[in-house]
Design a protein around this nucleic acid. Structure first.
Lengths: 171, 171
DNA sequence: GACAGCTCCTTGAACGTTAAACAAAACCGG
DNA sequence: CCGGTTTTGTTTAACGTTCAAGGAGCTGTC
């Protein structure tokens, strides 16, 4: 509730144009609907929200099906705190197990269990289908490519570690 | 945890190609980072999450600064339950007020208060700035246009009321 | 080798979201 | 106008997320 940053008092903000507003609205609506849709789909078929599913996928792709907590959090773009809670829940389900890191006594590995792997194997096809139906089946190859480029740019701009500005001398 | 739908047992699912996977990953990462970023920005500057802010915006744009609960929920793409909770909170802040609907005794209007309007006026420039910096300043006009089209298509496909498939005879 | 500062991860409390169940009013068909 | 159905909005409890704080181990410096 402080002053909005980036707008020195007395300066007219650069509002979005009508076109930009439409784009932004479409983005918000689509991303909201899509995330909701996938959350419901996975909650129903796999018993977990989309983010949790993504964690299992990431673990499944990793060597020895394990990843340090911080690394997993970084991949999934979530906070370590959130990951801690999430892994606690997945552990209760028997889908993930924690293991101590031998080389760093602070460290923990999250390890995908066999049971976790099976949930993944059983539910992945349905999830891929959902993604296909909601996104890829509706877009031309050009649009798919374009979407990838656009989202990569946006992600890079927000990556922790990036400054958020193309102005290195400001940091 | 039931069988995944859309994949009759014994049929090989249509996995995503490598390109599709990259696109999807970029999308997930960007949308996660972006929503987090905006949530934090608004939590800090306006004392509410992004969704709540969107509700105030929508009310502010509406005639007499009011909207029926169901209509507001529909615009914001959230459930009525979620809206009930949200409005309860915004009401506590004094930013929204409820009013009975004269023509339908079940109905409620959510009304943006003067105080709510002021929060909006004070914080909108900062929010627009954040959106610009994260998205529009990084994309070419062609990419912006493309993003709009793509997201419109995805949103339409998920719109409650749409079947989610181009196969009307399946419903 | 000790101190300072940093990284890793967890915790608890406050907050937001979801799902299911519900009451009240409106609607609709006979 | 009666009875069933739908619509509207809320409620409760379980669950997920965030934020701030903190404990424990690592690391670099003098």
């Amino acid at each position: 509730m402080n002053r909005a940053p980036g707008n020195p008092p007395g300066q007219e903000p650069r509002w979005l144009t009508a076109e930009e507003q439409h784009v932004w609205r479409s983005y918000i609506q689509a991303s909201t609907l899509l995330e909701d849709h996938l959350d419901r789909q996975l909650q129903r078929d796999a018993g977990m929200p989309h983010v949790y599913y993504g964690l299992l996928v990431k673990l499944g792709e990793s060597p020895r099906r394990r990843l340090r907590m911080t690394e997993l959090a970084r991949y999934a773009k979530i906070t370590r705190s959130r990951l801690s809670h999430a892994v606690a829940r997945l552990e209760k389900n028997g889908w993930v197990r924690r293991e101590d890191c031998p080389s760093d006594k602070r460290g923990q590995f999250a390890v995908l269990t066999d049971e976790g792997y099976e949930v993944l194997a059983r539910t992945a096809p349905g999830h891929v289908d959902a993604v296909r139906q909601a996104v890829f089946d509706r877009l031309t190859p050009e649009q798919q490519k374009s979407l990838g480029e656009i989202m990569r740019i946006v992600a890079e701009g927000l990556e922790p570690g990036g400054t958020g500005a193309d102005l290195p001398w400001l940091r």
